[in-house]
């Protein structure tokens, strides 16, 4: 079972308390009417789907109820970190250097 750290509860808790909520840092266009059909399609459906580190949203739905962001390796399923919603996308190279 995956253990996930909730940045609001500041506790590492089992996966059944959480719900996955798709890729993170995708801002809704401020003026959807200004977009072409292709741009709107890309906003709605096109995701990065990387092999490796993925920035994604989770919700501590059976807990504090909050959405937060996580960096998870899509190959190993390992979480590199979690952080509060609204915080900027972390720089992973800096993280790695700090850990070394």
């Amino acid at each position: 079972m995956l253990l996930i750290h909730c940045p609001y509860c500041d506790e590492t808790l089992p996966e059944p308390e959480f719900a996955y909520a798709g890729e993170a840092h995708i801002a809704r266009p401020a003026d959807p009417m200004a977009l072409s059909d292709e741009e709107w399609r890309d906003f709605l459906f096109i995701r990065s789907n990387p092999r490796g580190n993925h920035f994604e949203r989770w919700r501590h739905v059976n807990g504090c109820g909050r959405f937060f962001n996580a960096v998870r390796d899509t190959v190993s399923d390992k979480f590199a970190m979690t952080y509060r919603a609204g915080e900027p996308r972390p720089n992973l190279d800096a993280l790695k250097e700090a850990a070394e």
């Binding site: 509860c9 808790l13 059944p16 308390e17 059976n62 807990g63 504090c64 109820g65």
Partner: peptide, 9 residues
């Protein structure tokens, strides 16, 4: 804490 008991919040 709010948690989940056999699938039930």
């Amino acid at each position: 804490a709010r948690t989940v008991f056999d699938g039930v919040q």
